[in-house]
């Protein structure tokens, strides 16, 4: 061994066996100012439940900052600190480094403490990507970077981000009289990118709050495995996606069942499709057409049949042409892709 990575012990976080065996305690509680049916708020709740009381949470600017913690008001039971929009990686690294050195020097009681830094898609996939990438290359700091992806800068006024799906209506991509599709970029493949680009990172996964137990166990694995890890959650957003809040859970399921949001984990370099995605890939269940997903959301209300077909073709491509379905966009062969005419 040329170099030795000094791992500090992590908490023993075995998977929760079933929803009936979940701890009742909440470490992220009521009284946040998020939207009705906010899946990101649900993610915060389940993340805190999965991590438990000996946890420090760092939150970068976004909905989960502005709405959860408005001065003199908080929903956090565990210690929580704001970090800057692009700083989730740095916040996790700095906090983990402090705990490591203070415990080593005997300046702090020696015990494994979970360090979780969350960011939205704007803070993570856009502004914070270099800091997150750097943190994922530091093998000896135990921390989890959790990206809650509601596919826009939903707090600021629903402007498009690098994670907004093709064609979606945002305040920076509003359809007009001449241009129907103002957003021509395809969503960044953040989890795949983090996994492919950081060989020392032991755990990367994608989750959905519609599969809460699976999501909590994935986060527990990410916290227990040691070193920096990355978890990417797709969170339906009734505000920016424009749907009735009671549909949040269903739309999360649709994202997975239509193949738009593949669930997978890469653990110690081993790729594993998980949950419904695994069943779709194994041919046990059929992928639903994406229109079932798109037509439930006001942000796609301007779509024509061609737009929906194009969206479908890109998803099909992801499943049939990508080297690993939905994970890494290296194709078996290069094929032209043509967007519908304006």
């Amino acid at each position: 061994m040329a170099t030795v990575v000094k791992h500090d012990p992590t908490q023993a976080l075995d998977p929760f066996k079933s929803v009936k065996k979940l701890p009742l305690e909440e470490y992220f509680t009521s009284g946040h100012r998020t939207c009705q049916g906010c899946e990101s708020a649900l993610l915060m709740k389940l993340m805190a439940k999965a991590a438990g009381p000996r946890t420090i949470v760092l939150g970068s600017t976004g909905c989960m900052y502005v709405a959860n913690t408005t001065y003199y008001s908080t929903s956090w039971v565990v210690p929580w600190m704001h970090t800057q929009l692009g700083s989730s990686g740095s916040a996790a690294l700095g906090t983990a480094a402090a705990l490591k050195v203070l415990m080593r020097k005997g300046k702090m009681k020696n015990e494994p403490i979970n360090v979780i830094a969350f960011c939205g898609d704007g803070g993570g996939a856009d502004m914070g990507i270099s800091g997150i990438s750097a943190t994922l290359t530091h093998p000896d700091y135990n921390c989890l970077i959790l990206m809650y992806d509601n596919e826009s800068y939903a707090n600021t006024d629903i402007q498009l981000s690098g994670s907004t799906p093709w064609g979606a209506n945002t305040t920076f991509s509003t359809p007009g009289k001449v241009k129907r599709i103002m957003h021509h970029r395809w969503k960044k493949n953040m989890a795949g990118m983090m996994a492919a680009g950081h060989p020392e990172c032991k755990y990367v996964s994608t989750i959905s709050m519609s599969y809460g137990l699976h999501a909590m166990n994935s986060m527990r694995k990410a916290l227990a495995i040691g070193g920096p890890t990355f978890v990417h959650s797709l969170d339906p957003c009734p505000k920016g996606w424009d749907y009735d809040p009671y549909l949040s859970h269903e739309i999360g399921e649709l994202a997975v069942n239509t193949g738009v949001w593949p669930l997978y984990e890469i653990e110690n370099g081993v790729l594993r499709l998980t949950g419904r995605t695994q069943q779709i890939a194994a041919g046990k269940i059929r992928r639903q057409p994406v229109r079932d997903y798109l037509t439930k959301q006001g942000r796609f209300a301007h779509f024509t049949a061609d737009d929906t077909d194009y969206f479908q073709s890109k998803i099909d491509e992801m499943w049939t042409k990508w080297l690993y379905p939905g994970v890494i966009p290296f194709r078996k062969e290069i094929e032209a892709d043509s967007a519908p005419a304006e």
Partner: peptide
């Protein structure tokens, strides 16, 4: 038995 979480005393949200 059971569990009742403590809640944010300054924002209650029910008028939403």
């Amino acid at each position: 038995g059971g569990y009742k979480p403590d809640r944010n005393p300054t924002f209650k949200k029910f008028s939403t």
